[in-house]
Amino acid sequence: MTDNPAPAVVEPIPKWHEFMVPVLRVLSDGKPRTRRDSLTATLDEAGMTEEQRAVMLSSGQPKAENRIGWAMSDLTRAIAVAKPERGSFVITDLGKDLLQKNPYAITQEILRNIPAYRDYEPQRQNVSKADPVDIAVEDSELDPTEQIERGIQLLRADLATDLLKRLQERHPDFFEEAVVKLLLTMGYGGAENRGRRIGGSGDGGVDGVIDQDALGLDQIYIQAKRYAPDITVGREAFQSFVGALAGRGATRGVFITTSRFSAGAIEYAKSIPTRIILINGKQLTELMIRHGVGVQIAKTYTVAEIDEDFFE
């Protein structure tokens, strides 16, 4: 009788954030890579053994690749990595600078210093933004239900980042149509969906209009500005929209942008009698996800519990 050999010991797989430096090193040559090439090269860069690569999640996905995927998502959210086209990744100037300053380790605390990352980082309820909670510590304190909810928040943040990038890449006409559709889906314009895009030459500074009644007596005008994340909508652009509304005798409007508004524009909006709602890029993607515009359900998970009536 021979003894069964002891099972091989698999070295622990690095945490997902520990893959961020290897990802940036792989992309540091500036060449675009597909997701598959990026994953494979990062596994090699991080020195993952065949045993480590063979460890699977219950879903059937390799654990190491899943963690690299999360690292790539966070780097993309921080604009350290860009997607020049669908399914490909390339390092940005910010990413090169990030790697140069942090050649051995990059943490979420470091990413939180990047405004684009902070804009889409899920915040735990009852936690002040001025006192962020370290994710590794936070997750260890969560019960299973909280872990599921936390995971959903992270997936939504990743989706919001990708959704905003898609909007920024499309033609301004597409963006104007998208925001009109969003407002109609939210219930403005009634059951008849009385809304339309009116942007183009000679639009008078207005990109769309929603008729709240069948005769168009009550109207909401829309301004849609498709800007890059680093562009801020200032008071001047907002004043132009106010002037366009005054020229039409309108008293209500919605100003939507893929970027953000300056403090001056926000204060000016509060000081005028015309009722204008400001929606920045983060709020826009939240509304689109909530109302199912530009997104679709990818997976549905069912959580079961005991049926007390059955046992009674």
Results as ranks from 00 to 15, higher is better:
W70G: 08
L215H: 11
E85P: 05
K299Q: 01
L215P: 04
I91G: 12
R53K: 12
D203E: 09
E236R: 14
E121N: 07
Q153H: 03
H17K: 05
P84N: 08
I272R: 15
V293C: 08
E146A: 11
V26Y: 02
G249P: 13
I68N: 01
G216L: 04
A105H: 12
D218L: 14
S38M: 14
G95I: 10
Q52Y: 05
Q52R: 04
A157Q: 13
L245G: 02
E141S: 08
R33E: 04
Y117E: 14
N102G: 07
I256A: 11
E11N: 05
A136E: 15
I148E: 00
V26G: 02
A136G: 08
S201N: 15
K15A: 15
A178C: 03
L154Q: 14
P229S: 11
N113E: 09
P229T: 06
G95E: 07
K83G: 08
A160F: 12
E176H: 13
L155G: 01
P115Q: 06
Q61Y: 10
G95H: 02
A214E: 15
T76E: 08
G208T: 00
V137Q: 14
D307I: 10
G69W: 01
P229C: 01
I279W: 00
P12E: 04
G195Y: 01
H17N: 08
M56K: 14
G208H: 00
A130Y: 07
K282E: 06
S38K: 08
R170K: 06
G47M: 07
I152G: 00
L43C: 12
I110R: 07
A246Q: 14
V137K: 12
I152L: 02
K225E: 11
M186G: 03
I68G: 00
T40A: 09
K15T: 11
V179I: 12
S88G: 03
T40K: 13
T2R: 12
Y117A: 13
I148Y: 00
I306H: 02
Y221W: 13
T232G: 03
D162E: 15
K299P: 00
A214G: 09
M48C: 10
W16G: 02
G190C: 04
F241N: 11
E149L: 13
V303M: 00
R33V: 03
A130E: 05
P62S: 10
G151E: 00
D211G: 07
L284C: 02
G292E: 11
P84I: 10
S73I: 05
G187C: 06
D309W: 05
V127E: 09
R67T: 13
R196K: 11
Q108E: 15
A105N: 09
R25L: 04
G294W: 15
N126W: 09
H17T: 10
